[in-house]
Design a protein around this nucleic acid. Sequence first.
DNA 1: TTGATTTGACCAGT
DNA 2: ACTGGTCAAATCAA
Length: 294
Amino acid sequence: MGSLSFDNLHARKRNAMVKLVKGKEIAVQLQTLLREPVRDRGPVSAENLAFQIYRSFSDSLSELSSCTSDQIPAAEGGASASASSGDSGSKKKRGVKDRRGCYKRRRTSDSWVTVFPSMEDNYAWRKYGQKAIFGSDHPRSYFRCTYKKEGCKALKQVQRINGDEVMYQTTYLNHHTCNETLRAPPLVVDSNPIDPHLISFQTSNPSEQDNHGQYGNNSTKKPLVVSSVKLEECVSEDASNEAKSTLEVPWHDITGLDYDVWAPYQGEVESASLHGLDMEVDQLSDIQNFHYIF
DNA sequence: TTGATTTGACCAGT
DNA sequence: ACTGGTCAAATCAA
């Protein structure tokens, strides 16, 4: 315990800041690009820039959330030792192994939440469970990183939110330790036949496309939108304080936008959309003060 | 044949 | 007791 020095903590926060600022710079590039007529645009694609922005934010979130995991030493340790205790011989069906104590219920540490119209995030996930959730019309799906065998502990839970719009709340647990960026399937950006101004994030893996079907959503419509980001409190003045609090950081607080951000894609760029991006980029200048929030 | 998904059971936390 | 998270056998798909 206590191996995380202040210097280390600040280094991670600094890394997160660097990534956020990088995302901002890419957003400026995207803004500039979108101001050009489609025919005059260079080799740099808007979808590539949008993906880089997404990854910058995703990486910075991982960086920030990892602060918390370091502050909770062995949060998952302990009780697993009781797994081998010999009081077997209770209810067993279909010859199932005794799994008592074989897993630990995770704490809510090192987690963050996003709300997307898509469950895709360009990481390679493997589904390991699905559960009907009390009070929800839709089941919750459980995914772990495909490269768990190599030690990556990243998990995510995806649940469709009740409502007319197809929105998925994704809770991420632990950050990727695998080299997932080299392995993730290539990003395929497809225009939406209904609204060509929307960027569609999806993989080229047809099986993953099929997986969307069980949720009954239209897999072709996946515009980039993050409604809120939930981060664990990264800095605690009182390290002995066991009660960790979380704080909700609305997307609005980061971007200054009070509406969903829809990234224009191809064809004519509507002035309203461009104006929205103007606001986003301008408000992102506040990112420099981001660390004061935590 | 192999890897991914489905699904019911098991288990932990409240 | 209830709810949600995980496991693992069965099943599916490439």
